[in-house]
Write a protein that binds this DNA or RNA. Structure first.
Length: 291
DNA sequence: ATCGCGACCTGGTTGC
DNA sequence: TGCAACCAGGTCGCGA
């Protein structure tokens, strides 16, 4: 599943391969991915045909392509979305949803098209009116920790006013964007914090350390993922290569903790799972079953 | 303002 | 063997 580092790799690939290209035609093969676009597939295609793509930007896991008229294509990859730059003649992918015919000069564009492929269709595309600089649809989303303008002190202060468990807060896009289930668990493991510890029970030092670890984990993943996808075939295939090697908690139920050897525990969390070391990351009193 | 939960999706895997 | 249940999980919208 694409997390922030993978989305950044996709953004960089799009910047390189479709910047400057003009959209000659749009074909929507499944209407669900454009469900957020008010005028549907027809309006989506009409709004984009003839527009030139000026670049590729990102906030958290959202991507957008600024256009020459001040609008933007806003995209989210969801859990299984891919943006592919493919030869026009390449056979359609099994889950091809939207196809953008491109025209332009240079080998990056010639004979190629942009494809949105998404198996589970949690992802989506829409046209953001006037959204070239920052789509209004995502203006409420906080900056992500890899953004140079991310305000560390403000994040720490807000985190420490909240009563929710700190894992839930890490996933709150209005506080910090780009952190998903995997990196939340990894950042908590590194900080030796249990995800159910309330935000307002963290010391300032703990909150600062947690943010630092979240940033660190994502930077490490970006460093590894960035080398393996440097191809014309802009790809995120669900496997960043980082997952298998460097995870200490996520997906490691019953395996020994890399620090203390205690089996990693898996518990249900918001219709998914949390993984943590019960010894390094003891549950707060409030989360322990009453005797 | 904040909190917490269910719905949305598909396909691979697990369990009976 | 067949089929149902489960699992992955980011975001949105809802009621409290």
């Amino acid at each position: 599943m694409p997390e922030l580092p993978e989305v950044e790799v996709v953004r960089a690939g799009l910047e390189r391969h479709v910047r400057g290209a003009t959209i000659a035609a749009v074909e929507v093969l499944h209407e669900r991915p454009v469900r957020r676009h008010p005028s549907g597939p027809t309006g989506f295609a009409a709004a984009l045909t003839g527009r030139r793509i000026e670049g590729a930007r990102r906030r958290g896991k959202y991507l957008w392509l600024p256009l020459d008229d001040g609008d933007a294509i806003l995209a989210h990859l969801g859990m299984s979305g891919q943006m592919l730059v493919q030869p026009v003649a390449a056979p359609a992918e099994r889950h091809l949803r939207v196809r953008f015919a491109l025209t332009g000069v240079g080998p990056e564009v010639e004979g190629r098209e942009l494809r949105f492929v998404d198996q589970r269709m949690f992802g989506g595309l829409s046209v953001s009116v006037g959204g070239a600089d920052l789509p209004s649809e995502i203006a409420h989303i906080a900056r992500d920790p890899l953004d140079p303008a991310f305000d560390d002190a403000a994040f720490v202060a807000r985190l420490r006013t909240r009563t929710s468990g700190v894992k839930r807060l890490l996933l709150d896009q209005t506080l910090i964007s780009g952190v998903g289930n995997i990196y939340a668990d990894e950042a908590l493991w590194r900080t030796r914090l249990h995800g159910e510890r309330p935000g307002n029970r963290l010391t300032r030092a703990q909150a600062v350390e947690l943010l630092g670890h979240a940033r660190e984990v994502m930077n490490e993943a970006l460093a590894q993922g960035g080398t393996s996808f440097d191809a014309l075939y802009v790809n995120v295939n669900g496997e960043s290569g980082y997952f298998d090697r460097s995870l200490h908690a996520y997906g490691r139920a019953d395996e020994p903790c890399d620090r203390c050897g205690t089996p990693i525990r898996r518990v249900p969390f918001m219709n998914r799972s949390s993984y943590y070391c019960p010894r390094c990351q003891p549950a707060p009193r409030s989360a322990r079953p009453k005797a």
